[in-house]
């Protein structure tokens, strides 16, 4: 599918039939360094896309552009049909206000490499913070859902523990529960297992595998090629700010078409 021909519903938003995430010609530069050189990708609802590539390839930056932690310098991104971060006025795209960007971020969950749990709040307080403070949910109701989410990530007994008293793997599972509490349509994972001790990687990947099985749309930047092959529907390989290759996960990982992809995969397997 060529995303450039995806039809618009009006002058800025896409029709409900469009893929959940559409990125077209996304560009980003830090000073003179162009880190994204025109990324095109479409992610249908329910799909798991794993982005792999060497460090400095721009894969984390692209992920951060989707929920506007980075401002893009060119191109456009749509999530659930809605143009992200900008409002069209004729031939111009005007940047949205802080409040409008905050509203758009509610539907996009993100899990960070360094967990970024709020250290002054307990596990369950971390999870209800968003629903209560941002979505205006009743605390009792949010707490009940949070308990269920903690049970889902296998940490029901850690509800009152502060992050400093949890292992890395437990912290990351709480962080996933925190993201889920916002009832996101899309989850972004930014190298979720890279800061973990090797023996803790499995428990986090397990939770992510369950999530993928439940039909959650996920974009995962990862170095875990095994996870990508097993759970990813598609794998995208990025290098030097470009999307070099994207396709069926097993096919890309076992029989890559591009020389750069081949070189990367064989280097990782060494």
């Amino acid at each position: 599918m060529d995303i450039r021909t995806t039809a618009a519903a009006d002058d800025q938003n896409l029709s409900p039939a469009a893929p959940l995430v559409v990125a077209a010609d996304v560009r980003k530069r830090f000073g003179d360094n162009e880190v994204l050189k025109g990324i095109d990708i479409a992610v249908p609802k329910g799909e798991v896309v794993c982005i792999i590539g060497p460090s400095g390839s721009g894969k984390s930056t692209f992920l951060r552009c989707i929920n506007q932690l980075e401002r893009i310098d060119g191109g456009a991104i749509w999530v659930a049909g809605e143009l992200v971060g900008y409002r069209r006025d004729g031939n111009f795209l005007h940047e949205l206000t802080d409040a409008e960007i905050a509203r758009q971020r509610r539907r996009i969950g993100m899990v960070f490499q360094r967990f970024n749990l709020f250290p002054h709040l307990t596990a369950i307080e971390n999870i209800i913070e968003g629903p209560v403070q941002v979505l205006g949910e009743k605390p009792a109701e949010a707490r009940e859902r949070a308990e269920a989410l903690l049970a889902r990530v296998g940490l029901a007994d850690k509800r009152d523990a502060y992050p400093a008293h949890l292992s890395g793997g437990q912290q990351q599972r709480v962080a996933i529960a925190r993201a889920l509490a916002m009832r996101p349509e899309l989850l972004l994972f930014d190298e979720p297992t890279s800061a973990l001790d090797p023996e803790l990687v499995g428990e986090v990947l397990g939770v992510m595998r369950d999530l993928a099985g439940s039909g959650m749309t996920m974009i995962v930047v990862t170095h875990e090629l095994g996870f990508a092959r097993e759970v990813g529907n598609r794998v995208a390989f990025m290098d030097q700010g470009q999307l070099v290759e994207i396709g069926d996960a097993r096919k890309v990982l076992t029989d890559p078409q591009q020389a750069r992809t081949r070189a990367f995969i064989s280097a990782v397997h060494k």
């Binding site: 905050a102 968003g130 403070q133 941002v134 925190r178």
Partner: peptide, 27 residues
């Protein structure tokens, strides 16, 4: 306060003022 705390708060859809009050200032 770590940069990641600002990003985690933003990701939850917090506005700047709410982020300062609920997440950043207490730390």
């Amino acid at each position: 306060v770590d940069r990641g705390q600002y990003e985690a708060a933003q990701t939850l859809g917090m506005t700047r003022l709410k982020m300062l009050r609920r997440i950043i200032m207490p730390q």
